[in-house]
Amino acid sequence: MIQIGVDFGGTKIEAAALDLNGRFLSRLREPNPGSYDAALATICRLIHRVEAEAGTQGTVGIGVPGSISPQTGLMRNANSVWLNGRVFHSDISAALGREVRVANDANCLALSEAVDGAAAGAHTAFAVILGTGCGSGLVIDGRLVEGANGLAGELGHVSLPWPKADEMPAPDCWCGKKGCLETWVSGTGLSREFKVVTGRALDAETIIQSMRRGEAEAVAAFERFIDRLGRGLALVSNIVDPDVFVFGGGLSNVSEIYDRLPAAIRPYMFTDVWEAKLVPARWGDSSGVRGAARLWERTR
């Protein structure tokens, strides 16, 4: 018995075959072709290839940007916008000739890390992707929680909590709302806010490097970033109170985040004592495909 996972990324599509102990038997990727029918064909081709290398068929799970509406079955909220409004789950199952499981890519990260990653053994694990955008997912007792409307754990598109005067008016978000956390605590958000304050256009990586050199504007921008991320995670903690926060995405590699966040979270907690683990994903950019592979056994 093997498990096939597919990670549907913006620039690449990856498929992997895992045994039941989580060991890779085959792992392949191709560029995302950027159109719907071609993407379906790429997914099918990759699945057939990894199964051929593994020597057998397996269950198939796919992690996608966005999510599937449980009411309509249509894709929604995907940054690969040509997925939105399509019956992706039905179409890929038909193209492959068997049923597949589909979940949001941040949910797959959460599931992977809760099963055998940085949150293994935790009662409640909350995963946050800090990359181009901000996605998140919730796992309780080793099982993915998606919610009645498929929206559980969607932190990136709630408003920045406890906003301050200099954070108003809130910036526009691509989703049509204003002030979503994604506009503040993603890599794109860090770069956007730095330009608003300083007039300088720098990407997130350059801002972090400048911060480490002690450049005042970058240090201040990083402090604001930590404060805002802390408020977002305090909101989660006041509602769900996770044992572990696991971070993925490019900014998860910024080690200073883990040292600074606890002090940014505690002032907003409705409690006298607050403790939780804050850790980077054990499996890094492999978490998406590993979590997708486990969708058959760990969803409800």
Rank of each mutant, 00 (worst) to 15 (best):
L25E: 03
L25F: 11
S26N: 12
S26C: 07
S26Y: 03
R29W: 12
R29N: 05
E30W: 02
E30T: 15
P31L: 02
G34R: 13
G34H: 14
G34W: 13
S35I: 07
S35R: 12
S35D: 08
S35L: 13
Y36F: 09
Y36C: 09
Y36T: 06
D37Y: 15
D37M: 15
D37I: 14
D37T: 15
A38R: 06
A38T: 03
A38K: 12
A38C: 02
A39I: 04
A39E: 01
L40D: 08
L40W: 09
A41Y: 01
A41H: 00
A41D: 13
T42F: 00
T42K: 06
I43W: 02
I43E: 04
C44W: 11
C44S: 12
C44V: 15
R45T: 09
R45H: 10
L46S: 04
L46D: 02
I47P: 00
R49T: 11
R49L: 07
V50S: 10
V50C: 06
V50I: 08
E51V: 06
A52T: 06
A52G: 10
A52H: 06
A52M: 07
A52L: 11
A54I: 04
G55V: 10
Q57M: 09
Q57A: 14
Q57L: 00
G58I: 15
T59H: 08
V60G: 08
V60S: 09
V60D: 04
G61A: 12
G61L: 12
G61P: 02
G61C: 04
P65C: 06
P65K: 03
P65F: 13
P65M: 12
G66K: 04
G66I: 07
I68W: 03
I68H: 05
S69H: 05
P70I: 15
Q71N: 01
Q71H: 14
Q71S: 05
G73A: 01
G73P: 04
L74R: 04
L74D: 02
M75I: 12
M75E: 06
M75H: 12
M75R: 11
R76L: 14
R76E: 07
R76V: 02
N77C: 04
N77T: 03
N77H: 11
A78E: 07
N79W: 13
S80R: 10
N84I: 03
N84G: 12
N84T: 09
N84R: 06
N84L: 11
G85Y: 05
R86F: 03
R86I: 00
V87S: 10
V87A: 14
V87H: 15
F88W: 03
F88I: 01
H89L: 15
H89T: 13
H89Q: 14
S90A: 15
S90R: 11
D91N: 00
D91G: 02
I92F: 00
I92Q: 07
S93E: 10
S93L: 13
S93H: 10
S93R: 11
A94Q: 05
A94T: 05
A95T: 11
A95N: 03
A95Y: 00
L96D: 02
L96V: 07
G97M: 09
G97N: 09
G97F: 09
G97Y: 06
R98W: 02
R98S: 05
R98V: 04
E99P: 09
V100K: 11
V100E: 07
V100T: 10
V100R: 01
V100Q: 09
